[in-house]
Amino acid sequence: MTSNPQFGRETTATEVARVFGDGVRGKTVVVVGVSPQSLGESLSLALAAQSPSLLVLVSRTRAKMQTVAKKVQAAYPEVRLSLVPVDLSCLQSVRDGAAVIDRLVDHIDMLINNAGVMIQTHTLTPAGLELHFATNHIGPFLLTNLLMPKMLQAARASAARGGRPGSTRIVNVSSQGHEISPIRFGDVNFHKPSRDIPAEERPASIPGFMSFDPPPGQTYSPFVAYAQSKTANILISLYLNRHLDQSGVKAIATHPGSIWTDLSRNLDANYTRLVRKSGGFWKDIDQGSATTLVAALDPKLGDGDSDDVIYLRDCQVAEPAAHATDLKAARRLWRLSEEIVGQTFSLHEVSRL
């Protein structure tokens, strides 16, 4: 169901961007989560090579964005860049950043939600949200919805020019780790012991590897917290597609693969060994960014017969875990997310839910 069945785990983002260069040239692209030696850096360089009209880089730390921007400008000096600091764990920072982006652009052709955290300690934001859920899901959820009018504008403009439907894209970078856990709707912040979690919301166990339940007397498991946030990325993509199916906007979640990036900087030696044990083929960051660019650029994924595609792995369509394709869970997560951010969002489209 993709245009290039020969693409696979060793394909690079540089190659994907070159193949689909016509889908980048002259476009306005927002890349969230840009820092040195990250997927965001790789995505920015691969996209810049194909002459977008404007590349908006978003990240928590301006200095890190500036380091990446210097690399992009050195290689592609003609590309226009804008840098917007946003701390996804802080709702006010997300609102402020969205307002800056809104003033910078009149439309957005691609929004790539690539930012994320992985930490060991049970950390809550000042608003009381578990940090993985806040940064990997709630922040991108709010940013996406605040920028949605600019994405709908891009889709309308594309349709007026006779462009392909579904060419305006939202890409949510998820992980195969989503398979570990559904959404813990009764305890997204990990305050309850495992015995108090409904069976359908408890994490998986992998025979011969490990149980993902926390140790006795504890309520927090970092792998489960991360997995819950990655399931959320897929469910939100599902919800968006069901509500935007007539708008020309397509949302897709991706598993980039096993890659050593700055994401794992907060893990100690024990957790690093567990992550290393869980990986198969280890990709470099250019390979790790490839699937995200297939999701953002492959025109075939916007065709009518690809309406139900919500997840890619190794540059091809894949099937996520059943708990990540549950329409009721998608709707429930959307409502919960609206409650958390204190704002409702009407997508003004016919719902199939």
Results as ranks from 00 to 15, higher is better:
M1Q: 13
P5A: 12
F7Q: 05
E10M: 07
T11I: 08
T12F: 07
E15S: 09
V16S: 02
A17G: 02
F20S: 08
R25V: 13
R25M: 08
V32L: 10
V34T: 09
P36W: 12
L39I: 14
G40F: 04
A46D: 07
A46R: 03
Q50V: 05
P52V: 09
P52G: 06
T61F: 04
T61L: 07
T61W: 02
R62W: 09
R62K: 10
K64S: 03
M65T: 00
T67N: 07
Q73H: 14
R80Q: 15
R80K: 15
L88G: 03
C90D: 15
L91M: 12
D96I: 06
A98D: 13
V100W: 03
I101G: 12
D106G: 12
H107W: 12
V117R: 06
T123D: 11
L124D: 05
P126H: 05
P126S: 02
L129F: 13
E130M: 01
L131W: 06
L131P: 00
H132K: 01
A134D: 05
N136Q: 02
H137R: 09
I138F: 08
L142H: 04
L142K: 03
L142I: 06
L143A: 03
L143Y: 04
T144K: 09
M148N: 10
K150A: 11
Q153D: 14
S158N: 14
S158W: 01
A159R: 12
A160G: 08
R161I: 00
R161Y: 00
G163D: 11
G163V: 10
G166E: 13
V171N: 06
N172A: 12
S175F: 03
S175G: 04
E179I: 11
I180P: 04
S181F: 05
F185C: 10
P193Y: 07
R195L: 02
R195F: 02
D196V: 00
P198C: 05
A199P: 00
E200N: 10
A204L: 13
A204V: 13
P207A: 10
S211L: 01
D213P: 00
Q218D: 07
T219Q: 07
Y226T: 01
A232C: 03
A232I: 01
N233M: 12
L235G: 02
H243T: 08
S247E: 09
A253T: 04
H255C: 14
P256Y: 12
S258F: 14
S258M: 13
T261W: 11
T261G: 11
D262Y: 04
D268W: 06
N270A: 15
R273G: 04
R273F: 10
L274Y: 13
V275R: 06
W282R: 10
I285H: 08
I285F: 02
I285M: 14
D286T: 11
Q287G: 09
S289T: 06
S289G: 15
A295T: 13
D298G: 08
P299N: 09
G304D: 15
S306C: 15
D307F: 02
D308V: 00
Y311D: 04
Y311M: 07
R313E: 15
D314E: 14
Q316H: 04
V317N: 02
V317K: 00
A318E: 13
A329H: 10
A330I: 04
R332K: 13
R332V: 00
L336W: 09
V341T: 09
Q343M: 07
T344K: 03
F345T: 04
H348C: 09
S351H: 11
